[in-house]
Design a protein around this nucleic acid. Structure first.
Length: 123
DNA sequence: CACTTGACAACAA
DNA sequence: CTTGTTGCCAAGT
């Protein structure tokens, strides 16, 4: 059996635990980017976010479908159970997707750094 | 400790 | 559209 982890049970949250928390803050019908999340966390990089999100399929409910790359492309769709699931989920939330890209991406974009309080070192 | 892996970003050609 | 490079850095092996 592959080793499974559940970040919400861990005493010391690691990098991707923070990524999950931020991702869960993305409002319904909005999207965010790997870069925006990385920027909010002020550590790691966009790669870390994608890599972390990949770990989100350990049974945790994370709206990973609301995270796209900087162009608004659904680059993560291939990691969902089905390649169309990410697009369909967004469509159900009212986010139009055309050829694997979010329509009006700039208006749909939700940056954690502009809506969430700064990260508290003491937390 | 050394090495590899990435759902990225930004740029060049 | 494609193929490159460089930077990024936690986690896995």
């Amino acid at each position: 059996m592959a080793k499974k982890i559940n970040p919400f049970q861990k005493k010391n949250p690691s990098y991707y635990d923070k990524v999950f928390e931020v991702t869960r803050q993305i409002p319904y019908g909005r999207v965010s980017t790997y870069g925006a999340i990385a920027d909010y966390l002020a550590l790691g990089s966009a790669r870390m976010v994608g890599w972390a999100l990949n770990k989100s399929f350990y049974g945790i409910q994370v709206p990973a479908h609301r995270v796209v790359n900087r162009k608004g492309e659904l680059s993560g769709r291939i990691h969902f159970p089905t390649p169309t699931m990410m697009e369909e989920l967004l469509t159900q939330e009212g986010v139009e997707v055309y050829q694997h890209k979010v329509v009006d991406f700039n208006e749909r974009l939700w940056k954690p750094a502009e809506h969430l309080p700064p990260v508290n070192p003491e937390d």
